[in-house]
Design a protein around this nucleic acid. Structure first.
Lengths: 148, 148
DNA sequence: TATTGTTATACTCTATAACTATA
DNA sequence: TATAGTTATAGAGTATAACAATA
């Protein structure tokens, strides 16, 4: 009984998450103007809410290794979406911050993707939407990224 | 009111799905014995339930282009997880089928990943689990892959 | 001609290993 | 020595374009 509800849930998650993920990725990619990969998008998003975060902090939250995140950030800095600064007290650390342009790009990528998702979600009931939103919160509480 | 429930839902989906996706991918990768990428895993899964599917059918379901799927399948065939056959009536078509080894690999990858997910899901209530499972079904009904 | 699939090629993302700079 | 980050290098995954075979 417990067992079967568990199996059902894992099966559904394994089936659905990759599928939705691909849709999100493709949608983001369509709006080529922004030129953002999903992890870049998430990084901008994180930085917009965590101004001055260090590279390690971002890497941990997004779930990338430090070298990978360093490279990813390169791409953001090169295109002037973010700036690297040296931490005032610990000169080993890098603090990251969005530029105005970064904020704009984030907003437009987010809007485009949200619009698309919102359009998809319009076909389900209000009740189902709140169910989905709640389930997302539940999942996030379990799968929140920790140190790799 | 409608609007805000929509925004909340899209925000949650955009935040959560990539995060859970990364956990799944990393988990699958940990069990290196299987050497399966997420799309390969999904492909084996699809073929186990759709014996004799054509390359196009699989590509459409997984959400890859035909060339990409062709390459992916190469990897499965080379390692003897699947076989390519020619369709008896239309020699342009390829029909795909798992080998015994493919079934075994799929089962062991699935078990390992399921066990991991199941362990994670143990920390939430039975009620929450069924909520999550239902939400997955709802999302799948909206995001089911169609022709690219 | 239209359809199904493959091959050629290139690019993005990511990891591990080795390194630099600061603490 | 330990920590924060970067650079070098390599491999996986995917796309687009060009091609081959069959209908």
């Amino acid at each position: 009984m417990m067992r079967s509800s568990m199996d059902e849930c894992t099966r559904e998650v394994l089936e659905t998450v990759p599928s939705v993920m691909r849709v999100i990725r493709n949608e983001l990619r369509k709006h080529r103007a922004q030129e953002l990969s999903v992890p870049q998008f998430r990084t901008l998003n994180f930085l917009s809410r965590n101004k001055g975060a260090s590279l390690s902090e971002v890497a941990e939250h997004i779930g990338l290794t430090l070298p990978s995140m360093s490279t990813l950030v390169d791409g953001l800095v090169t295109r002037n979406f973010a700036v690297r600064r040296t931490h005032p007290r610990d000169r080993r650390r890098v603090t990251l911050e969005l530029t105005d342009r970064g904020h704009m790009i984030l907003r437009s990528a987010r809007d485009a993707t949200r619009d698309y998702l919102a359009q998809k979600l319009e076909s389900i009931s209000l009740e189902d939407r709140s169910k989905v939103a709640e389930s997302m919160r539940i999942l996030r509480s379990i799968f929140a990224e920790r140190a790799a």
